[in-house]
Amino acid sequence: MEPRPTPAELREILNNDLRDAVSLTPSWTTNAYGNQYGWLRLPRAEDLPAAVAALAARKARLCTVSAYAEQRGDREKRRSIAYHFALDSVLLTLTVRIYDPDTLEALPVPSITPWFRNADWNEREFKEMFNIDIINHPNPRRLFLDERLDAGIMTGLIPFSSLLHSAGSKDLWERVMAEKAGLLPRPAREAGEIVEPAFTPVERTGPENTAAAAPPKIQESP
């Protein structure tokens, strides 16, 4: 078995390959375990195929693709896409900005599926979630979302879960508090004395609590 290249060697290989392909070299970070992470921002989406072709020639592996909005709550503009590659032990993230910096107009992004077959699902996913146009995708049908839903849903809709913060909404808590039927008797104890409270369901804490509680304000939905 031939020896595996060291992270430093892999860094050098990637630096050279990308310099040749797009005249840029990534910056590198390391974590507490000494793992190496390369970061490169491509100023233009047109440079993406050249960089990706170089990585494909080097037999790097595409880990995944992350599209995101550069600003929180920005529903339409300023999208970037981060392409994450692994070359043995090092990871490289190529980021492309896919909007015109002056007009903020969204730009299409070239597909990298011709070089990395596993980009297929990733590209279809960001197309439908972020409404990003892809040039030359071999199989541009929907991945997860039904055809009847609009693309760009990831930021376009307010999810039900965020409406409720996914759980205890104000409404639900109002019902819980309405059932509380008065506070528990206040402990008249000296500060300093710690008594473990035994858990008792509220309805069994005393006859005064079993009296009709204030009715919930909102009718239960059917």
Partner: peptide
């Protein structure tokens, strides 16, 4: 809605 624990902390 009763499956809750309530306390008053003075």
């Amino acid at each position: 809605y009763r499956h809750a624990e309530h306390h008053f902390v003075p």
